[in-house]
Design a binder for these strands. Sequence first.
RNA 1: GGAGAGGUGACUGAGUGGCCGAAAGUGCACGAUUGGAAAUCGUGUGGAGGGCUAAAAGCUUUCCCGAGGGUUCGAAUCCCUCCCUCUCCGCCA
Length: 431
Amino acid sequence: MLDVKWIRKNLTTMRESLKKREIEADLDTLLNLDDERRECVKKGDELKHLKNLYSKKISQLKNSSKDPQDIIKETQKLVLHIKEWEKKRRNYEQRITDFLLNLPNRLHPSVPGGDDNIEEKRCGKLPKFNFSPRDHQQIGEDLNILDFKRAAKITGSGFVVYKGLGARLERALINFMLDLHISQGYKEILPPFMTNSAATTGTGQLPKFREELYKCERDDYYLVPTAEVPVTNLHREEILKEDDLPLSYVAYTPCFRREAGAYGKKIKGIIRQHQFNKVELVKFTTPQTSYEELEKLLLDAEEVLKKLELPYRVVRLCGKELGFSAAFGYDIEVWIPSQKRFLEISTCSNFEDYQSRRASIRYRDKEKGLIHYVHTLNGSGLAIGRTVVAILENFQDENERVRIPDVLHPYMNGVKLIERGGVSELARSRS
RNA sequence: GGAGAGGUGACUGAGUGGCCGAAAGUGCACGAUUGGAAAUCGUGUGGAGGGCUAAAAGCUUUCCCGAGGGUUCGAAUCCCUCCCUCUCCGCCA
């Protein structure tokens, strides 16, 4: 959530941000509402002040055993007026809050306008095949490690059952990523997979993206769409010490998304699912260091792909594609041979103080002891399902086998190849 | 799920209708003392909104004692609803 005062002072910047995002918002109305609100506060405060004076007087009169009836009557009238102003004020406050909760974050000046992301770098070598590469769904079903039909039977469309070495690979990736990020200095968190509405509003999913969430109706809890929600809310309504910053966390959670939009339903295989696994990086920093920390976070996420030997590129997101709460962000995209394109596998974002305002996450600076909002950052490190897609497709061979990258061998109990007919004690001993 | 006890500032803890944004202690910061430290002494030690001020500083005002309502001229204190924590019982991996 943005600060009305900030918007008032930076109207031009704010309008430019909205334009880059291609979003309409009536800022004049917002400022008018805020003027009205302040008028109510002023009037209300004056009357309350008077009331407090009267109350003291009544107390004094009573103590000197005089009759306070007249002044009590006067005060009763005053209270009615106060209630009117309060009612008006609450109404304006509600409207302002609603407006702000639905207003996206301002953009960092370096966020590109227009429709296109800017490619920042490419790493790794694209694989060359002397046969026509199959897509991951085909590979997964041929190897009997992905089962979509049975998942649909158990739950519905948009779910998958991992079997055998497929399940093993998924689990190996989770552990590998957690271990890597822990070694980079992140603290491991295993949070609840459901969050209440206050937490879900804190990070920006509510109220605007209600349609995207699975809700447990009876308890007013939401299944997490990303670990960002529970982990960022670790410090909701807290005042942190500057010395403790930056705080870096890594968390594995499943992610649940309704994918309610019209588009996306036809995407093949496990690329877009209602439930998928993800390892997420989250940082809390001072405003001075947040962009520096974002660069580090990006490198930490990239390291996963480097170690897995997967080809990828990094793009700077344009205003139109940047998330609602983000001020700036990169996507990491991994190469998908069957589609001959790069596919988003991680988004690394700086939310600046947008989430910390909503969630009231602050810190006390060392020098003056003043309180400021922290900056929050996060990035996938990485989406597991899509990493499986990349491994199956990039490391397939003409004999319908899939090579497991070296760093995963310890996590795969030594398995180096997945092939038809399951596994592969054989493959394990071969080297 | 049932029964009971409780939620007060960074923490411990007092406060049952006005002089309480809140005693006292601990902690923390600064200062004095010391060769330095400990101990001791002194001072300071919340948040949010509004107004005045070009801005900062400062002054002023309102609100905040788990959250939200209510009673009252006046609520941390009385009433109602909800949330959370603890203890006991039940159920369960």
